Simulated scan of single mutants.
Amino acid sequence: MDDSSIACFDPRSDASPLGDDEVHVWLSTVADATPRALAAAARAVLERLLCDYANCSNVPPRIERGPHGKPFAPELPQLEFNLSHAGRHVLLAFAHGQALGIDLEAEQRRLALGEIAQRFFAPAEARALARLPLPLQRSAFLQLWTRKEAVLKALGVGISFGLDRVEFVLDETGTAGALRAIAPEAGSVAEWTLHRLDPAPGMLGALAWRGPARRVRTFALRA
């Protein structure tokens, strides 16, 4: 499991070739942070990048959603992708032949951290969070949350799968680390690769897939 922090997003205006041993992660920042505008911007960026990767015309490929909402392009069966948005930012991930999950959260998002952890996290995670000083709890919670969401999105399942069935180590400094345990139907711990993403100030993200390590390349989309 690779759990490196990725903070440098090279600015680009189009997609570079996507190698079979790579995952490309894109960051886009929008001016209007209203939920409707952000969702529309995320869709537009996804269509633009899909066209770049698929070398299609000005008509973007059709996007559909699986039973739990995961998007896919039926006309591009070998191009896997996932996206997430929060605040004024959109994160997107692309790979050939490898299902992906990506999640993004704002550090200032208002959450009942202790209550959510007690109800939905693994008991060891909830206890580790409760032991942390208050200033560390929010970041630690979001590190766990984004990792869990990324794994569930890579699997193509919803939160009903069980956040407690994807368990991570949380150390005494509030840093989330290795995957400790996962539900048997999701494979073994050793099969999963995770990366922490630090795409912008005040934002936390995670990228996950069930498969061998790949090179992760990061780009910031220019208008």
Rank of each mutant, 00 (worst) to 15 (best):
Arg43Trp: 10
Asp103Cys: 07
Asp164Cys: 03
Gly66Ser: 06
Ser16Cys: 13
Glu107Gln: 14
Leu18Val: 01
Ala37Lys: 00
Pro35Met: 09
Arg217Tyr: 03
Arg12Tyr: 05
Tyr53Arg: 00
Asp171Glu: 01
Cys51Trp: 07
Val90Cys: 13
Ala95Trp: 02
Glu64Lys: 07
Glu105Gln: 15
Glu172Ile: 11
Lys153Ser: 01
Gly66Trp: 13
Arg12Asn: 07
Ala106Ile: 09
Ala99Leu: 13
Cys51Asp: 07
Gly187Pro: 01
Leu136Cys: 15
Leu155Ile: 10
Ser84Lys: 11
Ala99Cys: 09
Ala206Val: 01
Arg180Pro: 07
Arg165Cys: 05
Glu149Pro: 08
Arg62Val: 07
Met203Pro: 10
Val166Lys: 04
Ala95His: 00
Leu92Gln: 01
Ala181Phe: 05
Ala178Trp: 04
Leu132His: 13
Arg215Glu: 14
Val151Trp: 03
Arg48Phe: 04
Gly156Gln: 10
Pro201Leu: 11
Phe9Asn: 02
Glu47His: 07
Gly114His: 13
Arg147Leu: 09
Leu18Trp: 02
Cys8Phe: 15
Ala39Ser: 14
Asp171Cys: 04
Leu207Asp: 09
Leu194Trp: 00
Gly114Asn: 11
Pro201Asp: 08
Ala39Arg: 13
Thr29Val: 15
Pro123Glu: 11
Gln98His: 08
Leu142Trp: 12
Arg65Thr: 14
His85Leu: 11
Val23Leu: 06
Arg48Tyr: 06
Leu144His: 08
Leu204Ser: 12
Ala122Thr: 03
Phe72Pro: 03
Asp32Ser: 01
Ser5Ile: 13
Ala213Ser: 09
Gly158Met: 02
Asp103Gln: 10
Leu92Tyr: 05
Arg196Ala: 12
Leu49Thr: 05
Glu185His: 04
Val169Lys: 12
Arg48Trp: 04
Pro35Ser: 03
Val189Thr: 08
Ala31Cys: 04
Asp10Gly: 15
Asp2Ile: 15
Ala86Lys: 14
Gln118Cys: 10
Val151Ile: 08
Gly158Pro: 02
Leu194Tyr: 07
Arg165Trp: 00
Ala15Pro: 02
Thr175Cys: 13
Ala95Met: 03
Leu197Asp: 04
Leu79Gln: 00
Leu142Cys: 07
Phe219Met: 04
Phe219Gly: 01
Pro135Asp: 08
Val189Arg: 08
Arg65Gln: 13
Ser13Glu: 15
Pro199Trp: 04
Glu185Ala: 10
Val23Gln: 05
Pro123Asn: 10
Ala176Asp: 00
Lys153Trp: 03
Gly156Pro: 03
Arg180Ser: 08
Leu152Gln: 05
Ala86Met: 06
Ala99Met: 08
Leu134Pro: 15
Gly66Cys: 11
Arg43Phe: 06
Ala200Ile: 11
Ala86Gly: 09
Arg62Thr: 11
Asn82Thr: 02
Leu129Asn: 02
Trp145Ile: 08
Ala7Thr: 12
Ala42Phe: 03
Leu92Glu: 02
Leu100Arg: 03
Ser5Tyr: 14
Ala99Lys: 12
Ala213Ile: 11
Asp198Ser: 15
Ser188Lys: 07
Leu136Phe: 13
Ala37Ser: 05
Leu204Phe: 08
Asp21Ser: 09
Trp145Asp: 05
Gln98Met: 13
Arg222Phe: 01
Leu111Val: 15
Ile116Ala: 02
Leu46Asn: 09
Pro123Val: 08
Ala140Ser: 04
Cys51Ala: 11
Trp209Pro: 02
Asp2Tyr: 11
Asp20Trp: 12
Ala7Pro: 08
